[in-house]
């Protein structure tokens, strides 16, 4: 059973992602910011990181860069947006800094799961969510 680390400062986003992923038989651990995320990453075995970019204390881009340096093979999905006018621009920056995939908020369950399926090809994802 793959383990996914969700790093996002918004409780609601973490809750929704947890529900999506647990229904796909994945274990989910949560962090409220980059610092906590890095701490959990060092203490656990994680297969995929889903990381928000705009967070207090430790932003997502810096966090992605640190993960990429210490765990080059880690799969990372960057998520951002939420009504901020220039958030999408930052997703491009995240991609340049090491995110495997990026996803702008708001996104649908299927969009997220399709991206997760690309990152974890050995794990079975419900058919409706597989990339076409």
């Amino acid at each position: 059973m793959p383990t996914v680390l969700v790093i996002d400062d918004e409780d609601m986003v973490r809750l929704v992602l947890r529900q999506f992923l647990e229904r796909q038989s994945m274990t989910v651990i949560e962090a409220q910011d980059g610092e906590e995320g890095l701490r959990l990453l060092r203490a656990s075995t994680v297969d995929l990181v889903i990381c928000d970019l705009i967070m207090p204390r430790a932003d997502g881009i810096g966090t992605i860069m640190q993960i990429r340096r210490s765990m080059p093979g880690m799969k990372i999905i960057a998520i951002s947006g939420g009504g901020r006018s220039h958030a999408m621009e930052l997703l491009k920056v995240a991609e340049q800094m090491g995110a495997d995939h990026v996803l702008g908020k708001p996104f649908t369950r299927d969009q997220l799961l399709a991206m997760v399926a690309r990152c974890l090809p050995n794990h079975s994802i419900a058919r409706s969510a597989r990339p076409g």
């Binding site: 204390r57 881009i61 810096g62 006018s85 220039h86 958030a87």
Partner: peptide
């Protein structure tokens, strides 16, 4: 500020996370 067609300059950015958030805000 954007509603009044004004540019914005934010001073006091002391962390990367604030820089990212300031840009995300526009």
């Amino acid at each position: 500020a954007e509603r009044a067609s004004l540019k914005t300059c934010i001073v006091g950015i002391t962390s990367t996370s604030l820089a990212v958030a300031a840009r995300a805000a526009g």
